[in-house]
Design a protein around this nucleic acid. Structure first.
Lengths: 220, 220
DNA sequence: ACTTTTTCTTACCCTTAGGTAATATATTCA
DNA sequence: TGAATATATTACCTAAGGGTAAGAAAAAGT
């Protein structure tokens, strides 16, 4: 769109903003390429030269956008984490039973795990991060744990979920979900949506409270 | 123990064997220390100097027992893999329904995952291995997948397991199990046995074939 | 067109850690 | 005790790769 023809007095801010945008686009391109390479080869075997090469630039150019390799790693993790936390916020604000919320987060989380930034949440090693960044990631992991446990706890309270060991249940569900980040391949025969739909049912089916017979035994 | 005083005619093989044993013990000590350090710090951040230091020796001494760092990594993986495959063989030979076999392997697998060599199956990066070794590990992972799917398939065939998507079911169960290798801490409040017992029920509860509604069999 | 700022490249530094050579020290065995 | 073997140490090499300095090239602003 050529704004000069429409607006005779272009704001001096526009070029600045467009420059900012271009910069951010390049930054994101670096992150996309980096996370891809980190996943393919592992963080340590992947080199910044390799990242730069894929972008048709040279290594030092990367340092216009990031302060260090670890910085890139941490940002990749942050993007994945933010996606998850956004969905958790949405789910928290959702009306409905704990079981419903759990089903919702399981499905969306599965979808995220099938993306590169999502997989980076479980494929990267926290000990490759600096102490401050490591603390941030560990706190993030705890928040995810807490969210899942919260939905289960709510479900038990509102009667939608059969009473169970909350901690182990959350571990089991999160394990099944996180494992997606290890086995999912974009060129496979399963789409993220299929996985999300299946897992949202599969991982919660055993938890739903069944209609009370005289003696309710084990959950389905 | 001074064998010379007891046996007047000592076989020339005995010293040799005892030396072999001592050697193997040292080898295993290296592996135990190495796997521990690899898990604590990650393969790349952990150094052979660090491994040697914990053993009160120096780095080159390690090369009396292993040809390279990668060699050590691969052996750690192999030990974990062997433990799993042993249990799979046992389970294969077991009598009983597919569901029973699945419960059995889930429990034992959970226990293995709560050990250092077991965790090494999921905490280490295949791309840190040489091409031949990587092929071996990938083949190993496939064998585990195949075993789990086999039990599920058998269970469906013999009527102990409700028909389901075999592949996704196996992924979900293996994910929950493998995740143990990431969260289990020996100093936590859960013992491997507790986890094994819980998971063997938890991860299979949703699969068991329920009494058919047609026949209206009320639970006693 | 000229200046300034941003972005990128070439050339380089330098630490780290895996691996090796030469050699010393135990240990075994006769 | 002395030769042979096994095992460990000291000292060193070397490649790889993260990171930096100086300056060229491109873009923006005037």
């Amino acid at each position: 769109m050529d704004t000069r023809a429409i607006s005779p007095e272009p704001s001096p801010w526009l070029p600045f903003e467009s420059r900012r945008r271009a910069r951010d686009e390049k930054r994101e391109a670096v992150l996309r390429t980096a996370v891809q390479l980190f996943l393919e080869q592992g963080y340590h075997r992947a080199t910044l030269n390799g990242v730069a090469e894929r972008l048709n630039i040279t290594k030092p150019a990367l340092y216009n956008y990031f302060r260090s390799k670890e910085d890139i790693l941490f940002e990749c993790w942050s993007i994945g984490q933010e996606r998850v936390e956004d969905r958790i916020s949405e789910t928290d604000a959702m009306p409905g039973s704990g079981l419903l919320k759990l089903r919702n987060i399981v499905g969306t989380y599965a979808g995220i795990m099938a993306s590169a930034f999502g997989a980076s949440l479980v494929r990267f090693n926290v000990s490759d991060l600096s102490e401050p960044n490591r603390k941030v990631t560990l706190a993030g992991k705890r928040r995810i744990d807490r969210a899942f446990r919260g939905y289960i706890r709510q479900g038990i309270a509102d009667g939608s979920i059969e009473p169970c060991d909350i901690k182990l249940t959350a571990f089991a569900i999160l394990g099944a979900l996180n494992w997606i980040g290890h086995w999912y391949k974009p060129d496979g025969d399963l789409t993220p949506d299929q996985i999300a739909e299946d897992f949202s049912v599969r991982l919660t089916a055993g938890l739903a409270k069944r209609p009370q017979k005289k003696k309710a035994r084990k959950p389905a």
